[in-house]
Amino acid sequence: MRLVTWNINSLRLRLPLLARLTSDLRPDVVCLQETKVPDPLFPADDLRALGFEHLHYSGMKGYNGVAILSRHPLEPLSDLPVWYEKADCRHVAARVLAPSGSVELHDFYVPAGGDEPDPEANPKFAHKLAFVEETARWFANRPNQRTILVGDLNIAPLEHDVWNHKQLLKIVSHTPPETERLQTWIQSGFVDAMRQFVPPEEKLYTWWSYRNRDWKASNRGRRLDHVWVTPDLLPELSGMTIVAEARDWPSPSDHVPVVLDLAE
Rank of each mutant, 00 (worst) to 15 (best):
C89D: 01
C89V: 01
C89N: 03
H91W: 15
H91A: 12
H91P: 12
H91L: 15
H91G: 11
V92K: 04
V92S: 05
A93T: 11
A94W: 00
A94V: 03
V96A: 00
V96K: 00
A98F: 06
A98H: 15
A98C: 09
P99W: 12
P99A: 13
P99Q: 08
S102N: 13
V103M: 05
E104W: 00
E104C: 02
L105Y: 04
L105E: 05
L105V: 10
H106D: 12
D107T: 14
F108M: 13
F108P: 05
Y109T: 01
V110M: 08
A112N: 15
A112C: 09
A112R: 08
G114Y: 04
D115T: 12
E116S: 06
E116V: 15
E116C: 10
P117Y: 07
P117F: 06
P117N: 09
D118T: 11
D118N: 15
D118P: 12
D118H: 10
P119I: 06
E120K: 07
E120N: 05
E120H: 09
A121Y: 03
K124N: 00
F125M: 08
A126S: 13
K128N: 10
K128F: 10
L129Y: 09
L129P: 09
L129A: 09
A130P: 03
F131I: 00
V132Y: 08
V132W: 10
V132R: 03
E133R: 07
E133S: 15
E133N: 11
E134Q: 03
T135V: 15
A136K: 07
R137H: 13
W138E: 05
W138P: 02
W138A: 04
F139H: 00
A140I: 13
A140G: 14
N141S: 05
R142T: 08
R142L: 10
R142K: 10
P143K: 05
P143I: 01
N144R: 14
N144E: 11
N144A: 14
Q145K: 14
Q145E: 15
Q145C: 08
R146G: 03
I148A: 03
I148G: 03
L149T: 04
L149E: 02
V150S: 09
G151N: 10
G151F: 11
D152F: 01
N154F: 03
N154G: 06
N154I: 00
I155F: 08
A156D: 01
P157H: 10
P157V: 13
L158Y: 13
L158K: 11
H160P: 01
D161M: 06
V162D: 02
V162E: 05
N164P: 00
N164Y: 02
H165M: 02
H165I: 02
H165S: 14
K166N: 04
K166G: 00
Q167R: 14
L168G: 04
K170V: 04
K170W: 06
I171Q: 14
V172E: 11
V172N: 09
H174I: 10
H174F: 12
P177Y: 09
T179C: 02
E180G: 09
E180V: 15
L182D: 07
L182E: 12
Q183W: 07
Q183T: 00
